[in-house]
Design a protein around this nucleic acid. Structure first.
Lengths: 207, 207, 207, 207
DNA sequence: AATGAATGAGGATTCATTCAT
DNA sequence: TATGAATGAATCCTCATTCAT
């Protein structure tokens, strides 16, 4: 019996999504995907040029949205002078809101994009996010530092750590939860802890 | 004149450690290890049953120490009644201190154990740590909750999130830094943020 | 409204001709042909049993003309006694004229037949031409040899070489040129060089 | 029973040489080679990194010698001013002598290099030789042309044809003969025909 | 104790061909 | 008549593991 082309394509995508989610890009097996989709490996190549191509088909939309949102945020950061702490937090919240929105639209894809894309062309995404957050954190630290704009190596390392752990933590929350509202709450809580913590830390330094 | 068995074994371990650190368990190559150890792959199998076995040989000590320390902490937690917030923090600090101690003793092994053991039998270690920290957090939340001992699903999820992100963050700090003192400082800072943050959150709830 | 069978067949042939010319029989792709012909691979198999069959459909006419012309020339050769050198050259010129005529009629097909048929049943065509030319050359050498009719192994090898290189060279000229007049000129020149060369060689031997 | 490493390597090379000679680089199958060498495909990769690598192992020596000889000849051509026809012929004879020498040393390898290397990094060798011969022929034609140094398109095409057919013919002779002395004789004869032919052609033009 | 040869199952990918619709 | 889905065997290649020597 014959199945419509789109249906087949969708079944490949479904199978691929599951396989990529379980094993990540590198360890995902085209054979497994084919089997799960109820066909021979060769047939997948009628629909997708390569493993990369199939991966891209799944992640490209999320990737583009994320990249675009990051670009916008970055422009705002670069464009705004004399920013204050609460503005920085708002940047963070923008990033966080973007991630949560994307999660609501395509949770699995975002998860794969952030946590399981090693070996593919998307491998750098998490790093890019960290870099962006780091830029924000450097601003935060710079503003609150004794000698504004001049950060000691320790402060730089600290900012870097905060950026990395925030992003890693958000990714983890996305990874381990299914419900969008729950995720929103948890990320809010996380950012609250970080902001109070950082605020308090800075306050102590100045006394 | 032959090389003593132990010396050979040690050279295998040295080579394996480097390989596992660089590529993780899954992508580590027995051939590379053999080459770096100055021998043929076949010979490794005279000393170790399998890749998994060799991996275990390297990580078992750290794993045991970590497990034992976790057990002790767990007992203390279970044994102490009416704990207060600062005690919980002390448990956290105990865990943190354990990790830092182990890091100072065997940084590479701990790193591999926590961050590069995917695909091996040790893959669950990080999860175990999370579970332990989660238990502490549940206590913390339970103590401070309106109805002590009874946590809402949201509070449970929150506790779980805090536990996961703390552990993930500590692992990240271990992964991205080489210097023990730097690591100690960063972990301290991280825990400070979390504790201030959690404290503040709880305080707000009661007003 | 459906497309007439013949029209479809013709469009397949057109596409196939281009594909075979570009990639040769072995590396030609049925998918490419189908795509270029505006249909699916499966449909080609309603018109042709196989790649080989399709290949044959294209080359059969040229092949037959060539074979027939060769047959005629061969009969002339076998039928004429006491032939002289300039007659032999005329045989060569007949072959050459045949090839050029076929080239003017169906340049692509002839090119494919002679230069790109490896892997197909036509792979031997060039060899057949060489055999024919070789027969002519053996006559030439036989006539001019010291002991007419008796050729030394060296003379036989020499005749064979001349036959092969002439044919190979003509094929090369056909392969690397598009313009019929240019081809004619180059083949003429080639045959001139060979005939003067052979004549001179023979002359030298008798002094 | 165990076979010495070199013996295995040699048996792979022997099998590969036969396979490459029969099918050319592109169509040669590693499976076939492995089977002919009495082993599994995987085992070949203990000795050679890839098909290309195996191919290179067989052809590199011949390739280097040929390239070096061509370089030397090219330098001589470029360095000599006011050359005469017989010098040109001597260049041709140098090339021819190089090929014959290499053939005596490694006939199969040279054959593969010149005639069956499509798809590999050596694919351009024959073309390079043609280019070199073409350079010589352009000099020849230029010297003998009415307006020295200025060649009409027809003369250029003619020179190109002569260069190509000479090289193709020499390759063919190498391909179809086994005995070095025989090859030498045939190539000599070929060059004799071409030189007499070209000389005569030029002579006619000037009367 | 050590080697190096060898395997076998796996990886991604290609492609002529078949066949139900 | 034509489609497009599907197959199966082929391609090169990798790697943990085994085993005779």
């Amino acid at each position: 019996m014959q199945i419509l082309k789109d249906e087949v394509k969708r079944s490949i995508c479904t199978a691929a999504l599951a396989e990529f989610k379980q094993h990540g890009f590198l360890k995902a097996s085209m054979r497994q995907i084919a089997e799960a989709a109820g066909m021979t490996p060769g047939n997948i190549y009628r629909y997708f040029k390569s493993k990369e191509d199939l991966f891209g088909e799944l992640l490209q939309p999320v990737y583009e949205e994320l990249t675009m949102a990051m670009g916008t945020i970055k422009q705002e950061i670069d464009g705004s002078l004399c920013v204050e702490v609460k503005d920085h937090l708002s940047f963070l919240r923008q990033i966080d809101a973007t991630l949560i929105r994307l999660f609501r639209e395509s949770s699995t894809e975002l998860n794969i994009l952030l946590n399981l894309s090693e070996g593919s062309e998307y491998r750098a995404v998490k790093g890019d996010l960290v870099t962006l957050v780091n830029q924000i954190m450097l601003d935060v630290y710079g503003t609150m530092s004794e000698v504004p704009g001049m950060l000691s190596p320790r402060e730089q390392a600290s900012a870097r750590m905060v950026a990395s752990t925030i992003m890693e933590s958000i990714c983890l929350i996305l990874r381990e939860n299914e419900d969008g509202d729950m995720i929103k709450m948890l990320v809010d809580e996380l950012l609250f802890m970080y902001s109070v913590g950082i605020g308090e830390k800075m306050r102590l330094r100045h006394t």
